[in-house]
Amino acid sequence: MLHQLDARVKVNLTLSFILATTLTPPGAWPVLTLLAALALAVVILAELRARFVLVRTALALPFALAALPLLFTVAGTPLFELPWGWTASWEGLLRVANIVVKTWLSVLMAFTLTATTPFTAILVALRGWRLPRLLVTIVALTWRYLFVLVEEAQRLMRARAARSGQIVEGRGKSLAWRARVTGGMAGNLLLRGADRAERIYSAMSARGYDGEPRVVAQPPLTAGHRALLALGYLFLALLALTGILFWG
């Protein structure tokens, strides 16, 4: 159901959701529960496969390691003890859980946005925010040629693998050699990219490009979409405010 929704509405609501989640103070579990229910409802509406969602959103979690030391450094009710005087505290656990839950909820919504919206539509939404056109043009070109160059990178890696099948880990060629070959591939990608950019510039000029980035204007949002946006903002603002007022 979410796939047809205007990308501008989805982008703005996703960002508001993440902002509301971040604003929710630690310990405001009722608010986080409501936010989680909201996220779950959105994922259901998006009709994505649960496994796919779980795998993709779990990829962002290793960074949570950075929060783990808080378990031991936050003072409070002792929970358990590790050797060398490391004491975990209940308060520390809550802080870590708070960060992990917030991160996961944010990733979940960001992922649902990209899974239901083509990036080209997100680009249109970004233009709607009056982002500088030059920047949007660069991002659009990056996106357009990312796949072309990823394919070239994969061809380079395949060619390297085909010619270095006998090299066993740690033996054979030296580290410096391996680094130089990989660096050569990166340099190769840049040169190919630069050559392609020349040809693209010709193709753009051939159709009248004069250096000024231009786009066809988008139709304005419908009343229904505007109402949905307003409702979403209101609900998220209420949630965040509740959290700040009662648990801040």
Partner: peptide, 27 residues
Amino acid sequence: LGERQVPIMGVLAAAIFAGQMLNFSVT
């Protein structure tokens, strides 16, 4: 920079992005 730089920045950003996929085993 001239208008010629616009496609260069876009495509080289894609090249840097793709270049982040390249790796070599250290140990």
